[in-house]
Structure formats: structure tokens, C-alpha cells
Amino acid sequence: MEAAIDTQKISMKSLPAFEALASGHRACQGCGEVLAMRLAMKALGERIIVVSATGCMEVITTPYPQTSWLVPWMHVAFENASAVGSGVAGALLALARKGRLAGGDTKIVIMGGDGGTSDIGMQSLSGALERGHDFVYLCFDNEAYMNTGIQRSSATPRCAWTTTCPLGEEQPGKQEAKKDLVGIVEKHHIPYLATATPAYPFDLMNKVRRGAQVKGPAFIHVLAPCPTGWRIPTHEVIKVARLAVQTRDYPLYEVVNGKYILGKPGKNVKPVAEYLKAQGRFKHLSENDLAAIQQEVDERFAQLQWLASRP
């Protein structure tokens, strides 16, 4: 049987011409999330079924009765995208077994934002990962509930401004740390896990493709910059996402069958202040705040290096 997912490594020369999305979608100017989604779908190709949780990507691609999607796609609630994806995967297996479906290797792609993944969809995701269905989960993390008006989520980083954690004198911005979603997923011991961002488009596409080739669940966490909610100019979206990686605030790595593989270390690591000061949602930070965040970033990265050094 022909494989559903192309195995070729993606570079600019071998960039797939395929697009799963049509133009005319209603994303904001300079949306980093729809860009990440477009690139991921390019890597996956047309033999997919997409199950989407509620979120920006659902709202902007399907203003009913229109749709941007050129592949089979369905929208379900925030909390059950992984459960529905599991069901579709099971249905495909059953149909193939009964000989009623040719090409039963169609890949199931489940996607959600940070709200649909680390907040509301957490338990159905955990269940699907544990049961080990054959799917790729794409989490597009823009670090708040952006399409309803920038409300905080558990993925909003510490100190960030949102409309529900405004800048008060006692509590300037969010007081709690960002939930370690990737760590939680890692503890399900799935075959493939990776972090990516659209600032490194080929890295993102190749990780999605590698994830889709494993049998069983794969999880790709994508940091998707949001110009509206992060308070950045639309043309700086890619620059800011790149700074997140260059400052080690958002390190790129893979976990393949439990083995951590850290992306190539950058030549000159930048202070995290460069990443934070580029965004309006962090403009209130004091030198002390910046120093504390820098320490958190260094500690997280040291831990990651230790994990990657294990045989």
C-alpha cells in the first residue's frame, strides 16, 4: 500500500506545492498561527482527515457556509477533539478490516490551540495519547484565548499582560507560570514529540512529517506568535518567534521514543530581554522581572541539556 505521508526531507527545493487551505481565510494580518498551520498541512499532504477543536483556526477558516479547507475537516468542541479523532481513527481501522475502504492508512490529524489543548481538551488528549491511536496532534500555542479577546490561558507565560490578567499594582500581569504541556505529554511515553515554530519553517515541516511517519500518537507543539495578543507589529511576527528560540525561551527539540534530541545550539545566545521587550504584553517588566525570567529560562534549558545528555 502506498504510504499516506511522503517521506522526503523538505527543503526549499523540495517544497511541496500542496496547500490544504485556500486563501480568503479571515485570520488577522500577520497571523503566525495560520502560517504554522499552512506549513504543517503542506508537510502532511492530502491523505489526511483533520479534526479541529474550537479556536482561532476553526473560526477563521470556516465562516459557515464557507470553508478554506481543501481536505476533509471537521470541527468539534474544545474538550473532545482528541476523543473524536480517536473515533475517526478507529472507524478507519474497522472499515479497512471489513474491506470497505481502500487506502486505510489515511492519517488522522487533530489540532487545537493552547486553550483547546492544555486547558479544556486536556483529559481527552491524555486519554487518546494513552490509548495510542495513530494520529498527529498539532498544538498551535499562541499563549492565550486570542479570538475571544485575549483572555489568559494556562499556557500564558508568567508576567504577560492579557485582558483577564491586567497590569494592576499588586499583580502586574499573570502571576502563575506557563503550564509545561510538553512535559505532561512526554510523560505519556508516546513515540514522537517535538517543539517547533513557523520562524523555522523547514524544521517545522520536517518535524510534522517525521511525526506523521511513526505508528501511534505524535505530538507537535508549535509556538505561534499572535500580533494582536502579543502586541507586536504584524511584520515582526517571524522575527519575534525567531527571538524566542535564539534566547532559549522556547528551545526547539524532539523526543523520539523517550530520547531527547536538542536542536543545534545557536552561535550567540541572546538575553531573554530581547524577546520580551519586542512585545507590548511584556513592556511593563522591570529589570528585576527580566532577571528572574532569565534565571527561569537558564534553569529550564540546563535541565533540557541534562535530559538530552542521557544515553
Partner: peptide, 27 residues
């Protein structure tokens, strides 16, 4: 156009049988 349907105009299951139809909407 940027028009949302009202409840009695919805199809059962809200299925859309025109893939890529947003291309008609010029952003």
C-alpha cells in the same frame, strides 16, 4: 459576503460541500 446564516438556514450537521470556498472572499 461576510454573512452568517441564521439558525433556520443551517444544513443538518453544518456540512459544507464546497471545499476552499473562502477563495471567493477577497481579503
Amino acid at each position: 459576503r461576510e454573512a452568517l446564516l441564521v439558525w433556520d438556514q443551517l444544513q443538518i450537521g453544518c456540512d459544507i460541500d464546497l471545499p476552499g470556498s473562502t477563495a471567493a472572499f477577497h481579503t
